[in-house]
């Protein structure tokens, strides 16, 4: 499967944090031909191992997604929504959604018509609490088919724009899972000493919970966390990144020497990397992996995208394969004697 097609398929799948079974099964199936063993653990983390005699290296990108969950069914059959992870309420009115009840129900999130808004309401953004999903059915039927806790998925529309740009939901962080997929394919033809673990982690959006448990279980020597960061848009604050180049972050949660190794590998392979400064925690899997057990040297590679946590997360498609190339080359470059340099 081509990497871009992998992204198209994986972004289609339902996998709210905590209930990622479907997307885990897809990743396990797609990774399997390219590695020695694949397991899905109790948290829905997918752990794909490509064996080597050397140091244990963990790559982690999360496969869960933010979304909505049924929190209450009103007497008129309107479905009220809870949030799993940080869904932006401003994008909800006008969305098409699927409610995964006893049957899959297409629904829409409406909004009060502008004519009906009070003067006070006109100046305000919608809150999720003000909105509901309308599936069109009578209340009794809704109550038969839908239960509190059922998942509500936002619409999947894979939009290929000019200039390799792709806009679709859940590029955060399945685009990085796609980068791992690309790296695995490349590693079929590249020699590596390191014992490689490509982990598609669960529950990142609710606090890197899958990364925490998988890092404990694997106890790697080094780790590379992969996530998305904010690309420049008009009016964005300083510190956002250029869209078309991967980002190697630096900051107290990230290992400086391991980061310089990643930079060296990028340079040797003519892959451009920009630097983001993260002065505190990174709010990615890197934080929980880095502090697992007695500490794991960890770096963070980020893929810039625009419009994060919307259904049109936009990225430069060529970075999927560029990122795959960097990961594969880094995996091949890991040496036994790095250990001596890391803490000096």
């Amino acid at each position: 499967m081509k990497t871009v097609d992998f992204l198209r398929e994986i972004t289609r799948l339902r996998g709210l944090s905590g209930d990622e079974g479907l997307v885990s099964a897809f990743v396990a199936q797609q990774f399997a031909p390219y590695c020695d063993e694949v397991t899905v653990d109790v948290m829905h983390n997918v752990i794909a191992r490509k064996k080597g005699p050397g140091k244990k290296v963990m790559f982690a990108a999360h496969l869960d997604e933010i979304g909505l969950m049924v929190s209450k069914i009103e007497d008129d059959g309107s479905v009220r929504m809870g949030s799993v992870g940080g869904v932006d309420p401003r994008i909800l009115p006008g969305q098409r959604v699927t409610v995964f009840g006893k049957e899959e129900l297409l629904g829409i999130i409406g909004a009060k018509a502008p004519h009906l808004l009070s003067q006070e309401e006109r100046g305000k953004n919608y809150m999720r609490e003000d909105l509901h999903v309308d599936v069109g059915l009578p209340a009794q039927r809704v109550k038969e088919l839908v239960q509190i806790g059922d998942q509500i998925q936002l619409e999947h529309r894979f939009t290929e724009l000019q200039n390799n740009r792709i806009a679709v939901k859940t590029c955060d962080d399945r685009a990085c899972v796609a980068m791992m997929f690309d790296a695995l394919k490349r590693l079929q033809d590249i020699r590596h000493d390191a014992d490689l673990y490509f982990v598609a982690t669960a529950q990142e959006e609710v606090g890197s919970r899958g990364a925490r448990t998988s890092a404990f279980a694997l106890e790697p020597d080094y780790a590379v966390a992969l996530d998305v960061c904010h690309a420049e848009t008009p009016g964005a604050p300083q510190g956002t990144m250029k869209l078309s180049s991967l980002t190697a972050s630096m900051g107290p949660y990230l290992h400086p020497v391991l980061r310089s190794k990643l930079m060296d590998v990028a340079k040797d392979n003519n892959i451009s990397l920009q630097t983001a400064v993260v002065p505190r925690y990174t709010s990615t899997d890197a934080d929980d992996i880095g502090s697992a057990r007695d500490g794991i040297p960890t770096v963070l590679l980020e893929l810039p995208l625009k419009y994060m946590h919307t259904t049109v997360e936009l990225l430069d498609g060529k970075l999927l394969t560029e990122g795959g190339r960097l990961l594969a080359q880094f995996a091949a470059a890991v040496k036994e004697d790095w250990e001596d340099e890391l803490w000096t």
Binding site: V42, M43, V70, S71, G82, S83, I148, G149, T213, S214
Partner: peptide, 24 residues
């Protein structure tokens, strides 16, 4: 029994689930 989706708070379950390599 009822089905509970709580927008706030937490329980010991959160700590148990993330112990070691993860606990259902």
């Amino acid at each position: 029994v009822q089905r509970e989706v709580l927008a706030y708070g937490g329980t010991d379950g959160g700590a148990i689930q993330l112990s070691r390599g993860g606990v259902p």
